[in-house]
Design a protein around this nucleic acid. Structure first.
Lengths: 340, 340
DNA sequence: TCCAATTGCGCAATCGATTGCATTAATATT
DNA sequence: AATATTAATGCAATCGATTGCGCAATTGGA
């Protein structure tokens, strides 16, 4: 009942009374093998259902034809869009994609990265976990000269290819937009400050205030982990200020939504009394009511670019590292649009 | 500048003047190696940063410690939840997960499955593409005796482990609920009829009508691909009937939403004039307004179960195939709730 | 016709880890 | 002290595909 083991090139060689080398070369269309022999070999290979053992091949060739990707959470629109993009490009180039999620836990990330290393991935694409760490595991990657690409959440102290969105301009545009809509006291909810993305969004916020001659009020800026709960708590805190804000730029759409619900439940009209803008353009931001203005990040494109970069590094051993900054786009929806 | 190659057990052996076999055994905590030798070996391994080459190990052991998962689209809440579940269980068991998406294209699915086979995955977890095919590629998997688990979208003619949600009861509950809410003419929008899930949901719909003595009206049932566009078109068609429906059970949340928007734009009040229920409990269904009633499918749990099943098959070579049916839950929200 | 060039293919080592069996060293038994 | 056990380690083959080098056969040229 139990199937015999898969046929190998040796089985084919024996059957045809030739050597395994010849079979191997024939299957690779090596011109050193005559047309006749090659045809015979291919015919037999097909008829016995031969499938090359990539494990053996990869061992010999010292490569796995695999690229690893690590994200904080697979089950998040932006990240799964990136994965989709990576997967598309990699698949077309004949690579397999191994995916893992860190759950934003440093320890799991370390464990995953080591496992990928042991599996000899040809390259790694990663967006680091929120939980801070010393990044030794990623430095190991660089030391071993295994191609490494950061996307979205990067590590400044590691020199390699990086792809980010223009968080600074994103933050700037959001803030300028709120100012243009006539909001006077604009607050900001930022995320963990060990992540450059959140720092840059905040910088953009400050820059816009500065450009418009608006003085900076420390009490209007809060920092948390940007969960739904955090959003509610933060906006509650802000509204209890002696002079509360009349608009807020939230670090992501999740907090924008929870803030909006909190305010609406207290009879505050959006966008008439209060403006809200999120970040990331999660699918729900478009369909909630009022719909949420936000910054669109090109996740799928980012994945494609990341895959292209890593393939270049793998195949041409490109030694020059660049940082690609993808443009962000302000999507104005109802939650901040009171001027029309 | 270029780093020398990774250290192997042979390098360690040479350094300590012992054989590679001893090193290998020591690193596996084989009791045949003395405590002293083992300590020495482990110490050196750590200091030179030794990482076993899983490719070599897997080749020798004829297994890859990898399980493959194929979904129609990574970037879809339900599927990414399943992946998340699989990943969690697999990771804990020391397995790596390789993910690929078919984009609902039969050809891509075939190509992926062959690639997984060539990569010698220890098992495959798959939800098949919408586009119909003959499933030869999956039969090959069975023939080679490689563990295979279907989830959500299964293939009836292939005998193996399967995990599905109780689509029939889901469809039944939705319909009964609409009846209980006093809706009189309930339509149904179904998906591709080569997928059992959609057939079962429809069966549940019929059963509920039957149980309540409501006669079956063929014109109230439409079939399409359940895209957003399809939803709009279908509901438009239904509303043009001589006697239009006053409620609809949509095959997924996407069409429920697009239907809702279409109707709302025409001044039809939901749920007062018209009831809508979707399927899958996509995140947006909870936050849109009115929020959409739907059927919750336990995606994460399904992934965990799938991983457990495949691990059992891989490790215990379990020969008995079962079909696990996970319960569905009706989530009543605003779009169908006019009775309270 | 004879030597050179070209073509077609095989030998054997290699990638790195694993493991059955053999061998040596250490300890126990009488 | 001599033999029997037991413990600790080494040898060499193996997993399946790849490839540098060499050899034989065929073809070409003078």
């Amino acid at each position: 009942m139990h199937k015999k083991t898969d046929p190998t090139i040796h089985d084919i060689a024996r059957e045809l009374n030739i050597s395994a080398s010849t079979v191997s070369r024939a299957l690779q269309n090596n011109p050193r093998i005559s047309f006749k022999t090659r045809e015979k070999i291919i015919a037999l290979a097909n008829s016995v259902g031969y499938r090359p053992n990539t494990l053996a091949s990869n061992l010999r060739n010292k490569r796995s034809n695999t690229i690893g990707i690590v994200v904080p959470l697979i089950n998040r629109y932006f990240f799964s869009a990136v994965i989709s993009g990576v997967e598309e490009v990699a698949f077309k180039a004949g690579y397999t994609v191994v995916i893992s999620q860190s759950n934003d836990l440093a320890n799991k990330e370390i464990s995953i990265v080591h496992s990928m290393l042991a599996n000899r991935v040809d390259g790694l694409i990663i967006s680091i976990a929120m939980q801070p760490t010393n990044y030794e595991h990623l430095k190991t990657f660089r030391k071993k000269n295994v191609p490494l690409v950061f996307f979205d959440r990067t590590v400044a102290e590691i020199d390699t290819n990086k792809i980010v969105v223009d968080d600074f301009m994103g933050g700037f545009r959001v803030t300028q937009h709120l100012i243009d809509q006539g909001y006077k006291r604009i607050g900001h909810m930022s995320g963990p400050q060990n992540l450059q993305t959140y720092i840059d969004r905040k910088k953009g916020y400050f820059e816009a205030l500065l450009k418009n001659g608006i003085s900076y009020d420390e009490s209007l800026v809060v920092t948390n982990s940007l969960t739904s709960e955090d959003g509610k708590d933060a906006v509650q805190q802000l509204m209890n200020l002696p002079v509360p804000p009349d608009a807020i730029f939230c670090g992501n759409d999740t907090t924008a939504l929870s803030s909006m619900i909190y305010l609406r439940d207290r009879g505050i009209r959006i966008p008439e009394d209060f403006g809200i803008v999120g970040f990331s353009n999660e699918p729900f931001s478009k369909v909630v009511s009022p719909s949420i203005s936000t910054i669109a990040q090109p996740g799928f494109l980012m994945g494609q670019k990341a895959a292209e970069l890593i393939l270049q590094q793998i195949e041409h051993k490109d030694r020059s590292f660049k940082t690609i900054v993808l443009p962000t786009e302000l999507v104005v929806r109802e939650s901040s649009n009171r001027m029309r």
